[in-house]
């Protein structure tokens, strides 16, 4: 069963904000994450699929059928809300059995299935409790169970971990992935946390101003971002404005760099992008004749545990690097294959 957006556009009544020309497909068992800053339209995409909003143009297809006109209750999609939206007046098993109840399943059977589902998320002993008696993480598990118990055609997760503490967030991230894999269900995850998206998604969609900027695997987004905004949103980066000064050479404020210029013409404007962990530290004397070597001094040295994140002040700017080396750094080398050229930022 697949979920598909076919050139979907929606704008909020009376405004120019919304989402535009969205084309996406989520395959069976696939987990697709949408990331972006707040206001980028990522939640709107989820609301369109859930049926809370109706697209202005384009089609939304579930398992090949256009569901644009059908109400949320007819779409058979499990949604986990940001604050879980567990019904406070129902016991846990009643919460989970609710979708079965509205489908007319007999009380005995729905109770049995609800309790079995609770067991699958590790909450089997709490069936008679009320939601208010649970911690955030436990409510999260119950919400997940409720969204899956009626064997929906897709699973929609709206910022599911944002209400949890940092430690619990890591645990629940793995739990969501485990349950999702077990159910083998097409899943849409909306999050502002790029690390969360990269760590569990099969595919990541980056949104900006209501439009898709890039779709790719986590690795593609991280290593070959489409532009400077993606590079800046996903992980740490060095981004310098530059221009092509010759075949295989680019000029930047920090100096000239050798890299693959992909046949760009001389004088073309680019953004030069280097991940900090690809910058190599030098601890001894610096060979200034090498065009990729820069002598400098440490202007900031942050100890992060596994790595140090260092800003090197060099002539003309700063270079950020990450290293596990201890001790003073006197300069850096930027290998030519660590450099990517992105479109210039206007």
């Amino acid at each position: 069963m697949t979920l598909r957006y076919d050139q979907v556009s929606y704008s909020y009544p009376g405004t120019s904000t919304g989402v535009f020309d969205i084309a996406l497909e989520i395959g069976r068992g696939e987990l697709l994450a949408i990331i972006g800053a707040s206001g980028s339209g990522k939640s709107t995409i989820l609301k369109l699929l859930a049926g809370f909003l109706k697209p202005d143009t384009g089609r939304i297809l579930i398992d090949g059928k256009d569901v644009g006109a059908s109400l949320p209750e007819a779409r058979r999609l499990g949604v986990v809300f940001q604050n879980y939206a567990l019904f406070p007046h129902m016991r846990l098993w009643e919460n989970i059995a609710y979708p079965l109840k509205v489908r007319g399943i007999a009380k005995q059977e729905r109770r049995a299935r609800a309790i079995e589902m609770l067991g699958r998320v590790g909450m089997g002993k709490r069936a008679e409790d009320y939601p208010a008696e649970l911690s955030g993480g436990q409510q999260q598990r119950v919400a997940l169970a409720r969204a899956l118990v009626f064997e929906p055609q897709g699973l929609l997760l709206d910022e599911p971990l944002s209400a949890l503490d940092a430690g619990l967030r890591l645990e629940m991230r793995d739990e969501i992935l485990r349950v999702q894999r077990q159910a083998g269900i097409a899943t849409l995850l909306v999050t502002h946390d790029q690390e969360e998206a990269l760590s569990i998604a099969d595919k990541v969609v980056m949104m900006r101003d209501g439009r898709i900027v890039q779709i790719g695997t986590p690795r593609e987004l991280y290593e070959t971002p489409a532009d400077a905004s993606v590079a800046a949103f996903v992980g740490q980066s060095n981004l310098w404005p530059g221009s092509i000064s010759g075949d295989g050479m680019v000029t930047t404020p920090v100096g000239a760099l050798a890299c693959d210029t992909q046949g760009k013409s001389i004088g073309a404007k680019v953004t030069v992008f280097v991940r900090p962990e690809r910058v190599e530290p030098i601890t001894g004397p610096v060979d200034a004749s090498n065009p990729c070597c820069f002598a400098g001094s440490m202007s900031a040295d942050r100890y992060l545990g596994p790595v140090r994140r260092i800003d090197m002040a060099v002539a003309g700017g700063a270079i950020r690097l990450e290293t596990h080396l201890r001790g003073p750094i006197t300069g850096v080398t930027i290998p030519h294959d660590a450099i990517r050229l992105l479109p210039p930022t206007s």
Binding site: P72, E73, G78, A85, F87, P99
Partner: peptide
């Protein structure tokens, strides 16, 4: 009470 979210949740679970 934030009824809107509960009603949305109930709708996605199939309630008319």
């Amino acid at each position: 009470l934030g009824l809107a979210e509960y009603e949305h949740a109930a709708a996605t679970l199939g309630a008319s």
